[in-house]
Write a protein that binds this DNA or RNA. Structure first.
Lengths: 125, 125
DNA sequence: TAAGTTAGATTACAGTTGTAATCTTAGGAG
DNA sequence: CTCCTAAGATTACAACTGTAATCTAACTTA
């Protein structure tokens, strides 16, 4: 398992687009982000370039343009980010963190029963 | 409610010390961090200084040295960090995040029943 | 009182990030 | 074939970060 690159706040937005919509040209990424950010197209190109340098995205050529796609797994990146978040804020102790999250979250009845199911399942282990 | 300063990864360590142990001199902070990090004392002083400039800590004079203490609430900072984490990684949708957290976490039976209690309580609202 | 220690103040310096603009060159429009 | 456009490459530049070292002035100690 290779080491995951560190993805910055802004870069996360780009990665999420690429994870969800597969290989895209730079312009398609720009289009996907329209409305969600006020970034200039150039800014987005820069972010893509940086992600490539970090090894977080790869590309395949299509004519003279590239189609970019993620080179790292979303699940892994998310896991790492969660881990680093818990360590930073709670010093690694998970339970108080979860408790705070749950208390603070706006959850629908459905959400709640979903989460309870997960807990019950874990309890059975 | 004032705007919270942005606290960096390293600075979080210092803040957590100050939140938990109240006003401390720089040296006491250094001592508290011994073993937890490999930072030189100077590094820790720098972090404290930066936190002061950001308005995250204040100090009271004691002779010619200062005793530093947090100027922002831990709960608020944690909440903000949680919020920004969820937004960055999950685009703001809380449930999948919580589900992932719960599934991934190593939880004791006690943890689980604690968390279930919270959920039940929320369900009743 | 002179010298050493030490606390805070100032300075250092490279890497990352946010946020783009300019340069270069390959393809498409005429 | 020439000129314009637009894609990627290169460059910009300040703020923030990680990680300290040096400077300065106030106590402490001999």
């Amino acid at each position: 398992m290779k080491t995951l690159p560190k993805i910055s706040e802004s870069e996360w937005l780009v990665m999420r687009i690429l994870w969800s919509k597969g290989p895209l040209t730079a312009n398609e990424v720009v289009k996907s982000l329209t409305g969600k950010t006020k970034w200039k197209p150039k800014t987005i190109k820069t972010l893509i370039t940086r992600l490539m340098k970090k090894g977080a995205v790869k590309f395949e050529k299509e004519g003279r343009k590239y189609r970019y796609y993620p080179a790292v797994s979303e699940a892994e990146c998310v896991r790492m980010e969660r881990y680093s978040f818990v360590r930073r804020v709670y010093g690694g102790t998970t339970r108080p963190m979860l408790a705070a999250f749950l208390e603070d979250a706006k959850l629908s009845a459905e959400d709640i029963s979903e989460l309870r199911k997960i807990l019950e399942q874990k309890e059975g282990e």
